[in-house]
Design a protein around this nucleic acid. Structure first.
Length: 752
DNA sequence: TGCGGGTCCAGCGGG
DNA sequence: TGGACCCGCA
């Protein structure tokens, strides 16, 4: 920490200012009006934001319900809420704090009817969006099925984010692809409307519409929110910008925090101009720059700055630190992804064994989720516990989505995507032909396909499959009759039983058990809604599911190496960071290769990754890598070129084909450079996540004999408490040395 | 209609 | 590599 400013004891408003440096303090105490905080990596951004809210409240300048704070991720929202509760000594009543999407949903649920948004709209996630677009594409041109729904979804999403409408898009369409999208988009919109559904972009767009067109509603919120604070402002897209602007129209007591160098979401419509033109938007704006970095040691910061410095479109900025230089940044080339993973495992183990580090302090970063596979295989084989963040998300799993689709149909029988998903799950003999018949019946009746089921097979039209469709209808009508008053878990049990999902999933295979346990996990979530009736709890559950992208990502209560993408790691910090796959085509990713702006974003992505490291940073690239199943020769990333000579000298045959297959090479120029013990200084102490539950004492001690169900009897070499729990290094008599997260492993003390 | 097996082609990131 | 799609057979 910089020179702390001591508080006069007793005054809560002053207490909030303790341990802030001068610029941080200036930002926290800045008077009303527009405020731009340019916060470099590791400069205490979240801290400043939360302390500003606490300060505003503690000094009586606003009451909590007059504050709106917006973040980009659920994780950031959660963290900010926890910190606020600690600072203010309790939950601030009426405070609005959440992601842009969550805030938009809240606005629309309350006041959406002012612009004809159905009160009980369903939220379509990425999968739903693609399914809906698949149908739309089929309807407008069966011969052009080759367009992937994913590409179409991306195009529509992008166009929406740019504020286009189907009409404006159609008038600008040039390529065959664009013409096809121009035709499919209106059909897609109609499908959403019929389904009472909004996709993620609609949530924001409709909120914009509400605030720009429904004047009385807008005025109410403008009056209410006297202080608006926005995190990660560099990542706002046009809709988000307009939401903020509309809400701040009356008071303009707007605080935005961001770092242009950490803008990594242009592909999702983020517009760097929003932050760059803040001062033009609000000419009275004050600007505070936070440039002191409290996270990383000097060499790490130097290397990261060297990388980002190569970007041309950039606001000049220089981070500095009072921390010492720290260990050298290590750059190494490995033979292939397998050896890269082995090097990570090797070094991780060495740091644990010889330098007092723990796995919970380490993260392995990569560009694409696919890269986690090689890492997982090696870590699994070496018995090193790890925690994979992201990957196939819990709510994306087939059995979970199927179950959720039934739950959605309970509330909203018009949900065409949900209907199509489960009408034949489990198999009920309802195939494509039956669905076509049904769609015709539905169109004639002017109803949803779900509602048309009882009508199908009546009249002249012969439909052999009609009787087979009864089960789905009976199932739903029965569930609807029962659902509203029941507790949520009961409804869920009933859904699983009556629909036959349970029977389908539990097929006796290990995979079946896995699927079933996922459904039980969903049931566990349902239990958290307590005794509320399903009528209230079910919409809440579905909304939570739809809006929580990373609910099962990083769990701070578990030990082990963290495996995470460069995108997801933003906002986190680790004492030890490995960045893997620093190769052309991967980072920068091949899709950005010919796009200067894309290249700069890729470079920022690497910068974000490097600045996560507090003590040690490893940069790995391979000589060979399997891409899409086939081996390719990898070229070291161009981003490595500007690294300081000190770093580059450490590399092993960087940029050249190795004549001998290199193995994991430690620093050849400076033997011993990596073997100094990790300094347990102030910087390191920050590894303890604030508020994280840390057990008071380790359960195991060196020398104790324990038995593990799988590896037999062994001796504890050491056991340490980390922010993520207790970690034990055990020398097994027959199975070598392994590292365990004590909470996860079944260990029993044995008498020696 | 369901299912096994072959082919083709994209290929990243996330609320 | 693996998911989506197609085909032919039961």
């Amino acid at each position: 920490m910089g020179p702390p400013i001591r508080a006069r004891s007793g005054d809560p408003a002053e207490a909030v200012l303790v341990d802030l440096n001068q610029p941080q303090r200036a930002a926290v105490t800045a008077p009303d009006g527009p405020l731009l905080i340019l916060a470099g990596a590791g400069s205490g951004k979240t801290r400043v934001l939360t302390h500003r809210i606490a300060h505003l409240v503690a000094t009586g300048r606003v009451r909590p319900h007059e504050v709106l704070a917006v973040t980009f991720t659920n994780r950031a929202a959660r963290e900010m809420r926890e910190r606020l509760v600690r600072l203010l000594g309790g939950e601030p009543p009426g405070l609005w704090l959440g992601t842009f999407h969550a805030i938009a949903v809240r606005l629309l649920r309350r006041d959406g009817d002012a612009i004809d948004v159905p009160r009980d709209f369903t939220i379509y996630d990425e999968g739903d969006r693609q399914a809906a677009l698949r149908r739309a594409l089929q309807q407008v041109g069966a011969e052009e099925r080759r367009v992937s729904p994913a590409a179409a979804a991306g195009a529509v999403s992008h166009a929406k984010n740019e504020g286009q409408t189907p009409a404006t898009y159609a008038s600008r369409a040039r390529t065959p692809f664009e013409h096809l999208i121009a035709r499919a988009w209106p059909v897609y919109e109609q499908l959403l409307a019929e389904s009472h559904a909004l996709d993620f972009d609609d949530l924001l767009l409709r909120a914009v519409q509400l605030l720009e067109e429904a004047e009385p509603v807008a005025r109410r919120y403008q009056d209410r929110f006297q202080q608006i604070l926005v995190d990660e402002y560099q990542d706002t897209n046009q809709s988000q910008y307009r939401i903020v602007r509309a809400l701040a129209a009356r008071h303009a007591h707007l605080t935005v925090v961001g770092d242009p160098d950490q803008s990594i979401y242009a592909w999702r419509g983020a517009d760097l101009r929003n932050i760059l033109s803040f001062e033009a938007d609000y000419p009275q704006a004050q600007v505070v720059a936070l440039e002191q970095n409290y996270r990383s040691t000097g060499r790490i910061l130097e290397a990261a700055e060297a990388v980002i410095h190569a970007n041309l479109a950039r606001v000049p900025k220089r981070l500095w630190t009072e921390a010492g230089p720290g260990p050298a940044v290590t750059l190494a080339q490995l033979y292939d992804e397998r050896e890269e993973a082995t090097a990570v495992a090797h070094e991780a183990r060495r740091l644990v064994d010889h330098e007092g580090a723990s796995l919970g302090e380490m993260a392995v970063l990569y560009r694409t989720n696919a890269q986690s596979r090689a890492l997982e295989e090696v870590l699994l084989r070496q018995g090193i516990p790890y925690q994979l963040v992201g990957g196939v998300r819990f709510y994306q799993r087939k059995e979970v989505k199927d179950c959720l689709a039934y739950l959605r149909l309970l509330l909203n029988p018009d949900d065409e995507v949900a209907f199509e998903r489960v009408v034949n799950v489990p198999k009920r003999g309802v195939g494509p032909q039956s669905l076509v018949d049904l769609a015709q019946v539905a169109e004639r009746a002017g109803s949803s396909r779900m509602a048309a089921i009882p009508l199908a097979g009546e009249g002249r039209r012969r439909s052999a499959a009609a009787p087979a469709r009864r089960p789905i209808h009976d199932t739903i009508s029965e569930l609807r009759g029962w659902a509203p008053d029941w507790p949520l878990p009961t409804v869920l049990d009933r859904v699983l039983a009556v629909t036959g999902l349970r029977q389908m999933v539990q097929d006796g295979t290990p995979e079946g058990d896995e699927r079933w346990s996922n459904l039980l996990e969903l049931r566990g979530l349902a239990e958290e809604f307590g005794s509320q009736g399903a009528r209230e709890a079910l919409p809440a559950l579905l909304e939570q599911v739809a809006l929580s992208g990373d609910v099962d990502s990083l769990q701070e209560g578990r030990a082990g190496l963290t495996l995470i993408t460069l995108h997801q790691v933003k906002g986190l910090e680790f004492p030890i960071v490995f960045i893997t796959g620093l190769e052309e085509g991967l980072l920068p990713h091949s899709r950005s290769r010919d796009d200067p702006a894309g290249l700069e974003e890729e470079r920022r992505l690497l910068y974000v990754g490097m600045t996560r490291a507090m003590q040690r940073l490893y940069l790995f690239h391979a000589y060979r890598r399997h891409l899409y199943g086939s081996p390719t020769l990898a070229v070291p990333s161009r981003f490595l070129e500007p690294l300081p000579p000190e770093v580059r000298r450490l590399s092993t045959s960087l940029g050249a084909a190795p004549s001998v297959r290199p193995s994991w090479v430690e620093d050849p120029a400076r033997p011993g450079a990596l073997s100094r013990p990790l300094a347990r200084d102030a910087v390191h102490a920050r590894a303890v996540a604030p508020g994280a539950a840390v057990a008071s004492a380790a359960r195991f001690q060196a020398g104790q004999r324990v038995e593990h169900a799988r590896y037999g009897v062994g001796t504890i070499l050491k056991s340490t408490l980390t922010r993520a729990g207790e970690e034990a290094v055990i020398q097994f008599d027959a199975a070598g040395t392994r590292i365990f997260a004590v909470d996860d492993a079944v260990l029993r003390l044995v008498d020696s």
